[in-house]
Computed example of a mutant assay.
Amino acid sequence: MGVIMKYAQIAGTGSYLPPRVVSNDMLAEELAGRGIETSDQWIVERTGIRQRHIAERGVTTSELATKAARQALEDAEATADEIDLIIVATSTPDFVFPSTACLVQGKLGSVGAAAFDVQAVCSGFVYALTTADSFIRAGRARCALVIGAEVFSSILDWSDRSTCVLFGDGAGAVVLRAADEPGIKAASLHADGSQMKILCAAGNVAYGQVTGDPFLRMDGQAVFKQAVTVLEKSARAVCEEAGVALDQVDWMIPHQANLRILNMLARKLGVPMEQVVVTLDRHANTSAASVPLALDVARREGRILPGQHVLMQGVGGGFTWGSVLARM
């Protein structure tokens, strides 16, 4: 038998954004045609978002996920044949079933790999990354493809100004490889189902009809308060588990939801904003795609370097939250 490598390292990253860019001014003009008033100033002051990418109707989550996956495979110098695990984090799957991961697998041609979806909304990528890390640590996988991908524009109520200006579409992916030194150093996942009403899309298809409310609904103030509290606690917990002081963290990549949340979180943790990766101004909130998108952007811009510690965090509907500390 060969040597069993019990750790997981990030070997490559990739991302994909739909080509259609919608600025705040463009969105305000579209919404004005529906009798809804908003402006670039209103959106920027409250969120920090300046634009978002929106997929054309008919473009699916698996299409975005596959394009991000191909980039990550190329970056890791890996082939589809090497992949023995595919996990897709998404709240906007192509179908009820098969899973989006199986559809991606079919598009990539990595026949035989285990493939399934993870549903933890905006925490989805952190949940999926932790799951893949566990598979590799247990010797159940050696090369995993972890993807966060969303077409959130398909579940937005475009007459609800409080939510429709916040989100965008996109996908991010990483390749994890088994290694004899830890890349993923610590992880922490949590949920509180009693808080489900503060962020949900509580509808489904049953008996051939839509039942419930199929659109995303959010209590923004409640989400803000919860997000800052749980992310601060989670960040401290993973750093303690890894034996890494907060001032040894080179980069923070929190879920890209609202610039105010990021500013307050950084202040509470004593991390300078210069060390917080911010992409929400360009991408808006892409849910499960936000963290891997930001990771890939920062790597390709030459900011995140090999050997550096990166703290990735998600928080979302469920209510779910979690953190992963990785050494690149």
Rank of each mutant, 00 (worst) to 15 (best):
M273H: 06
P254D: 12
L259K: 00
L262N: 11
Q248G: 01
L265P: 01
A245R: 15
V271C: 04
P272N: 11
Q256F: 10
Q248A: 15
T286M: 08
Q256D: 10
A284H: 07
L280H: 02
N285W: 09
R260K: 15
M273E: 10
N285Y: 03
R282D: 12
I261L: 12
V278P: 01
M273D: 06
D250S: 15
P254I: 09
A257M: 06
T279I: 09
D250A: 14
W251D: 00
M273Y: 03
M252I: 13
L280E: 00
I253W: 05
D281N: 15
D247C: 14
M273G: 06
I253Q: 02
T279M: 07
I253K: 08
V244E: 10
P254E: 13
I253L: 13
D281S: 14
Q275D: 13
L246F: 09
L246V: 10
A266W: 03
L259C: 05
I253F: 05
A245Q: 14
V278N: 05
L265S: 02
V249F: 06
V276G: 01
V277E: 04
V249A: 04
T279Y: 06
L269Q: 11
V271S: 03
I253V: 15
L246S: 08
T279Q: 12
V276R: 07
L265A: 00
W251T: 05
V276P: 04
V277S: 05
V244F: 08
E274P: 00
Q248N: 14
V276S: 05
P272W: 13
M273R: 11
V278K: 01
V244Y: 08
A257V: 11
Q256V: 07
K268S: 08
L259M: 14
Q275K: 15
T286K: 09
